[in-house]
């Protein structure tokens, strides 16, 4: 029997390309000022799921993302790489969600899919580096987790057990778990396959039933779903039966109090000439105040 695999992915601003206007005045991220990319470790999670599907016949790879309508790009990218089903969870009422509110919405969406065996996601997203959403989602689903997985060592679909190697400080451990389980995947293995050219041709214009041309979240209505597979399903807050009080801002206990740009502290610096005398003088000072020696 095949396995139902669910991959949680995120579209993130590329934090390697920060510019001055990356933050809005209210302290939130100005995503429009940064290029948006597929969170790197989530691509490894998708690859791990596609690898499992190759070894366990009749398995299906579902990809879920929560985000604004523009996040549809990571779903298209997932289709290009071979996902069977993709869904965008999008609603104004999800906006400003912290990791707790995000994990709640993802849990509702996973339960909407129904039966699942393995939930996979990247270890962490490069915009927040929190590594919290995976474990928070696992707890809400009431299932076990293996975090920081570098390799799936063994998967027995009949006995419903999985053994994974996870990185820990100064080494690794191999952990065996019963299914269902949530795995967070690092970038140590499962290098993402490139998008398939044929699939790109098939899906480049993939869109949603509710939209004509550019779609916007205002197009979303309750229960908006696509009948056809391999195109993009849209779920809003009602479609996944989520409680609005647990979503978005009301469902987020953490608040950003303030944001400071990193400013270099300007202590007085003493420039030392590159000569034996000057360096000798500096060493003498450091020995005298017990910094050295």
């Amino acid at each position: 029997m095949g396995l139902n695999l669910i991959v949680l992915v995120k579209q993130v601003p590329d934090t390697q390309n920060i510019t001055g206007n990356a933050m809005k005045e209210d302290g939130t991220v100005n995503r429009s000022a940064l290029p948006a990319i597929f969170n790197p470790e989530d691509l490894h999670a998708l690859e791990a799921a596609l690898t499992i599907r190759e070894s366990v016949p009749d398995s299906r790879v579902h990809v879920l993302t929560m985000g604004p309508p523009s996040a549809v790009q990571v779903l298209k990218d997932s289709l290009y790489r071979g996902a069977d089903f993709v869904a965008l969870i999008s609603d104004r009422r999800f906006a400003a969600a912290d990791t707790l509110a995000t994990s709640y919405a993802l849990k509702c969406a996973i339960e909407k899919i129904g039966a699942y065996d393995i939930v996979l996601c990247g270890r962490q997203a490069i915009d927040g580096d929190t590594a919290q959403v995976g474990p928070q989602t696992a707890e809400k689903l009431g299932i076990n987790q293996i975090t920081c997985v570098s390799e799936i060592v063994e998967l027995d679909a009949d006995k419903r057990t999985i053994t994974a190697r996870r990185s820990i400080e100064g080494g690794f451990e191999k952990v065996r778990s019963a299914l269902p389980v949530l795995l967070t995947i690092t970038d140590e293995s499962y290098p993402p396959r490139p998008p398939s050219a044929i699939k790109m041709m098939t899906y480049k214009n993939a869109t949603t039933e509710m939209s004509s041309g550019d779609f916007d979240e205002t197009y979303l209505t309750s229960g908006a779903e696509l009948k056809a597979e391999n195109t993009i399903t849209l779920w809003d807050i009602n479609a996944i039966n989520a409680d609005p009080d647990s979503c978005g801002l009301p469902g987020s206990p953490t608040k950003v109090k303030n944001i400071d740009m990193v400013v270099l502290k300007s202590e007085e610096i003493r420039m030392i000439e590159n000569t034996e005398e000057a360096i000798g003088g500096m060493v003498h000072e450091l020995v005298a105040d017990h910094t050295l020696g």
């Binding site: 933050m23 927040g128 580096d129 608040k255 303030n258 944001i259 400071d260 990193v262």
Partner: peptide, 12 residues
């Protein structure tokens, strides 16, 4: 946060 480019103060 943000790859070390900002320092955020968070409260709950």
């Amino acid at each position: 946060a943000f790859g070390g480019n900002i320092i955020a103060t968070i409260v709950s």
